[in-house]
Every structure is written in structure tokens, then in C-alpha cells.
Amino acid sequence: MKIIVCIKQVPDTAEVRINPETNTLIRDGVPSIINPYDMHAIEAGLHIKEKAGGNVTVITMGPPQAETALREAISMGVDSAVLLTDRAFAGSDTWATAYTLAKAIEYLGADIILCGKQAIDGDTAQVGPEIAEFLDIPHISYIRKIDEIKDNKIVVQRLMDDGYDVIESSFPVLLTVVKELNVPRLPSIKGKMAAKKAVIQKMNAADIKADENCLGLKGSPTQVRNIFAPEVKKDRIMLEGTTEEKVTALVNELMRLKCL
């Protein structure tokens, strides 16, 4: 079984704050991490390898510093890592990102492709299904459990709002995973040592035989027009007085607004 896990290095958004004066993000000291959902995809890849045999490759598109994320994945036990890096990838939206990853996966070949359900910086959840479309293979989103893996098919549970669907698919298939699927393992010392020494395969646009009109900004149908801090409502009324007065005032407001 050839397994590819797509990962993304993201800023730990839990620690990102907005500077209210300059309206910019305060990034000082915000660490870069592997997108948390992708950690579950890595764990799923390792789990499938342990059950069905094969090897696991992690792949990411990003700047040279994204190598850190790949090495972290190796320390957890994945076999190899590929970094897609090229100036031509700059400004990729989800469409161009998915195209680029798909071209690389096509080049590498895979039976199972795993992605986290979404990245915590963009939260779009689009790249996984788009990769599947570019590769013309089926995909199943929101995998919360893998029921069985056989030579020619996989049966999984897809998390829905009101329960779950049991779905089977042939190979190759792309799966996006949710946190309920597993608990990502911690690295091992041997893994960390291997990660330190590992050679990361670097690939650029030419290596993956990509159409340059589909890459980066040029290949991106969407553009960011502007970014801004979330607005805040201004019409608040602070209720003052003793505890008794505050509560009475609130109850009166609620009655006025017909909330009771």
C-alpha cells in the first residue's frame, strides 16, 4: 500500500492576536506547527501501514522552512518526505494548491492519499476534495473511523451532522480525516534521530511537470481583496446599579424585546 499524507505548516492560530491599533496580526513568538488535523492524517497513514503494510510519504507545498514540519512527521515514523517549493507556487489559492499537490502525487503514485479535514489558518477544507478531482479518483471526507482495509477496497465512516455514513471505496482513494479518528502518536527517539539525518526530496514546478498557467497567482481563480479585523458591535448598553437594579433592568429589557 503506497500512502501519501498531505500536510501544511501553519501558525498556531490559538496564539495569534490582532493589534487593535495597526489592525495587523501579532505574530511575535507564534510558533509554526503541523496543522493539527494533519497530525491525525499522519497517524492514520502510519496505522494503515502497520495494518496493511506499505510505506508512508508526507508531502507539503511551502517555503524551504516547511522542511521542519516534514522532519517532525519523519520523527513520528513516516518513511519519506517531499517538499514542493518553487517561486512559481507563490500566491496559490486552494485551486492552485490542489493542482500542484495533485501533480506531485500523480508523479509519485499512491493508493491512499490522506489529508486533515482542513487547515486551521484557512479553514477552507477544499484542498483535499480538489486534489481528488484533479487526480480523477474518489474521495471521502470527514473520516472518523476506518472499519476495514482489504486489498481492493476500504470501508470507512464519514462523520455527518446527524450521525455517520458507512462508505466503501475502491483504490486509489483520498480521505480527509477528523480528530475523532485517532490520537496522533508522539515522536520516538529513533524517529527523531532519523528525522535529523533524513534527506528531504525537493521538487519544483518542472519536476512535477506542472502547467505554469495553473500555478501560483496565475493559476488561482480567487484573489484576496483585503483583510481586516472583525468588526465589533457598538450599540451596547451597560446596565448599572446594584445587583438588584441591574437584574431588574435586564428583565425589563427582555420583556420589551419579547424574549420572555
Binding site: 489559492d93 486552494t94 485551486w95 490542489a98 477552507t124 477544507a125 484542498v127
Partner: peptide
């Protein structure tokens, strides 16, 4: 932007070579 929409709409956008904005 439900489990259904977020799962298959990206495939449609990829196939049609057009942009999709989530959420």
C-alpha cells in the same frame, strides 16, 4: 458550508476550473 457542501462543492470548483470561497 455543511459536511455535504464542504465535501463535494470543492470537486465541482476544481472540475470547472473556478474559484471557491469557503465559509
Amino acid at each position: 458550508a455543511t459536511p455535504i457542501g464542504r465535501s463535494f462543492i470543492p470537486r465541482v470548483a476544481a472540475r470547472l476550473k473556478t474559484g471557491l470561497t469557503a465559509d
